[in-house]
Simulated scan of single mutants.
Amino acid sequence: MILVDHDSNGVGQRKAEAAARRFHAEGRRVRLALPPVPDTDFNDILRAGKAAEIPHA
Rank of each mutant, 00 (worst) to 15 (best):
H6R: 06
H6V: 01
H6S: 00
H6K: 01
H6M: 02
H6P: 00
D7W: 15
D7Y: 15
D7R: 10
D7Q: 11
D7H: 10
S8Q: 13
S8D: 14
S8F: 13
S8T: 11
S8V: 09
N9A: 11
N9R: 14
N9H: 15
G10I: 01
G10R: 05
G10N: 06
G10H: 06
G10F: 09
G10V: 02
V11Y: 14
V11F: 14
V11H: 14
V11A: 13
V11N: 09
G12P: 06
G12K: 09
G12L: 01
G12V: 03
G12Q: 07
Q13N: 02
Q13I: 07
Q13F: 12
Q13C: 04
R14Y: 08
R14W: 08
R14Q: 11
R14G: 03
K15F: 12
K15I: 12
K15Y: 13
K15Q: 12
A16W: 00
A16V: 02
A16L: 00
A16K: 05
A16G: 06
A16S: 11
A16Q: 03
A16Y: 03
E17T: 07
E17A: 15
E17P: 05
A18I: 09
A19N: 04
A19V: 09
A19H: 01
A19I: 08
A19G: 06
A19T: 10
A20F: 08
A20P: 04
A20T: 07
R21H: 12
R21N: 11
R21W: 10
R21C: 07
R21D: 11
R22S: 10
R22I: 08
R22Q: 07
R22A: 11
R22G: 04
R22Y: 10
F23D: 06
F23N: 06
F23I: 04
H24G: 14
H24M: 09
A25I: 03
A25F: 07
A25K: 13
A25L: 09
E26G: 13
E26V: 07
E26Y: 09
G27Y: 08
G27M: 14
G27I: 11
G27K: 12
R28K: 15
R28L: 15
R28W: 12
R29Q: 11
R29N: 10
R29M: 07
R29K: 12
R29L: 06
V30P: 08
V30S: 08
V30E: 08
R31E: 14
R31Q: 12
R31K: 14
R31S: 07
R31P: 04
R31W: 15
R31T: 11
R31V: 08
L32A: 02
L32F: 05
L32P: 04
L32Q: 01
A33M: 07
A33V: 08
A33F: 15
A33R: 13
A33H: 15
L34T: 03
L34Q: 03
P35T: 00
P35S: 00
P35G: 01
P35F: 00
P35V: 00
P35A: 00
P35E: 00
P36T: 05
P36D: 08
P36V: 03
P36Q: 10
P36N: 05
P36C: 02
V37H: 04
V37P: 00
P38H: 05
P38I: 05
P38K: 05
P38F: 09
D39H: 09
D39P: 04
D39K: 04
D39M: 05
T40K: 00
T40G: 05
T40W: 03
T40Q: 01
D41P: 03
D41R: 04
D41E: 08
D41Q: 03
D41L: 02
D41C: 09
D41H: 06
